[in-house]
Nucleic acid binder design. Structure first.
Length: 270
DNA sequence: AAAACTACCTGAGTGC
DNA sequence: TGCACTCAGGTAGTTT
């Protein structure tokens, strides 16, 4: 369940080991990810990784001739291993680097993807219609007010819509709505401007703080093992059904929206 | 056009 | 101990 902070943490952890290095070989052992891994990925041997950036939860490996577009889905992870290291169950792809190490793509549920895009990745179908990055200046109250106007969709689903803003997954949506005192079922168009402002701040804060925590607990990605879980301990409502609200002591509730659990305080969130 | 629903997948957890 | 079952969740694509 990598949310945006984990993807960013992964990017920062992996970048020093791949940017500026050449790929010497690519091994694809399991092609059946969200979409089949194209043969163009196998042919990346000899390419140099010029940059590793992120757009939404997509990792973008700029290799000069194009861009590897990677998504970790629900259960994906990247790990650097010594050359020739044992393949683990669910290791699907290995990028051999000229450092002698290998970058392994691991994804038990195979919801992730590894694609190759020639030309501008910003024009790729997966990228082109995405909303602003939550930590950018483009994501602000004026923008959100404009997008929410007249919308009857629940605010929770609205903020999880990647065409509105990227990187707000199920957990952070619950957290941000709690922090801004908005009921998850409230129609997006019926949230007052001031509270949309609070929501912008809350999303920024919760994502920003998690990225910082990821930074401080950053594994070295050479001996990565297990889940970081660096936000688990600081969740305010998510997963706390039937427990006392940390603000008012009322009982935290869980409802299901679009087949996703939403946690909220019926007293603090209206 | 917008909203609702479906498919994809495996590991963890639960109940019998 | 083991089987059968449910749940979790990102997101593109399809249906209503």
């Amino acid at each position: 369940m990598p949310e945006l902070p984990e993807v960013e943490t992964t990017r920062r952890g992996v970048a020093p080991h791949v940017v500026g290095r050449s790929i010497t070989a690519v091994e694809v052992r399991e092609r059946r990810l969200r979409w089949p891994v194209p043969r163009s990925v196998d042919r990346l041997a000899g390419e140099r990784v010029v940059d590793l950036s992120r757009r939404a939860k997509y990792l973008l490996f700029d290799v000069g001739s194009g861009t590897v577009i990677m998504h970790l889905g629900m259960s994906g992870s990247l790990r650097l291993v010594e050359g020739g290291a044992q393949w683990r169950k669910h290791d699907h792809i290995s990028f051999h680097m000229d450092s002698g190490r290998e970058l392994r793509f691991h994804d038990p549920r195979r919801f992730g993807c590894v694609l190759f895009c020639k030309g501008d990745p910003g024009k790729h179908r997966l990228i082109r219609d995405l909303g602003p990055e939550p930590l950018s200046q483009d994501f602000n109250v004026d923008y959100l007010v404009e997008r929410a106007a007249g919308k009857t969709v629940a605010i929770k689903q609205f903020v999880m819509n990647a065409q509105v803003v990227v990187g707000v997954g199920n957990i952070y949506a619950s957290e941000a709505l709690f922090m801004s005192g908005i009921h998850p079922k409230r129609a997006a168009g019926r949230v007052a401007r001031a509270r949309l402002g609070k929501l912008v701040t809350a999303i920024r804060e919760v994502l920003g703080r998690s990225i910082e925590m990821g930074g401080t607990t950053l594994r070295d990605f050479l001996h990565e093992d297990g889940k970081p879980g660096y936000f688990r301990q600081s969740l305010r409502v998510y997963g706390r059904e039937d427990e006392a609200c940390i603000n008012c002591n009322a009982t935290v509730r869980r409802i299901v929206q679009n087949a996703r659990s939403s946690f909220y305080c019926p007293n603090c969130q209206r």
